[in-house]
Amino acid sequence: MARTKVDRPISALPGAIGTCALLCAAAPLALPPGSVPITLQSLIVVLAGALAGGAGVAGVIAWLALAALGLPVLAGVKGGIGAMSGFSAGFLIALPLACRLAMRWAPGWRWRPTLLLMLAGHGLLLALGGAVIAMRGGDLAALAVLLPGAGVKSIVAMAVLLVVGRRFKTAA
Rank of each mutant, 00 (worst) to 15 (best):
M1D: 12
R3T: 12
T4F: 14
V6F: 07
V6P: 02
P9T: 03
I10R: 02
I10E: 03
I10S: 01
S11F: 07
A16D: 05
I17E: 04
I17F: 10
G18D: 02
C20M: 14
L22S: 11
L22F: 13
A25G: 08
A26W: 04
A27T: 01
A30Q: 07
L31H: 12
P32N: 14
P33N: 08
G34F: 10
V36Q: 04
P37S: 11
I38H: 08
T39V: 13
L40D: 07
V45N: 12
V45A: 14
V46W: 05
A50Y: 06
G53L: 09
G54N: 13
A55M: 10
G56P: 09
G56V: 08
A58H: 09
G59L: 11
G59R: 05
V60D: 07
V60T: 13
I61M: 14
W63S: 08
L64D: 05
L64Y: 05
A67Y: 05
A68D: 10
L71P: 05
V73W: 07
L74F: 09
V77A: 15
V77S: 15
G80L: 08
A83P: 07
M84F: 10
S85A: 15
S85T: 15
G86R: 05
F87N: 12
F87H: 12
F91Y: 15
L92R: 00
A94P: 03
A94I: 02
L95T: 12
P96G: 03
A98S: 14
W105K: 01
P107L: 06
P107Y: 01
M118I: 05
M118F: 03
L119P: 05
G123P: 00
G123S: 07
L126N: 07
A131G: 14
I133C: 11
A134T: 09
A134K: 11
G137N: 07
G138W: 01
L140H: 05
L140I: 11
A144P: 01
L147S: 00
L147T: 07
A150I: 03
V152G: 03
S154V: 04
I155V: 15
V156G: 00
A157D: 00
M158F: 00
M158E: 06
V163I: 14
V164L: 09
V164G: 10
G165R: 05
G165M: 10
R166T: 13
F168E: 10
K169G: 13
T170S: 15
T170L: 15
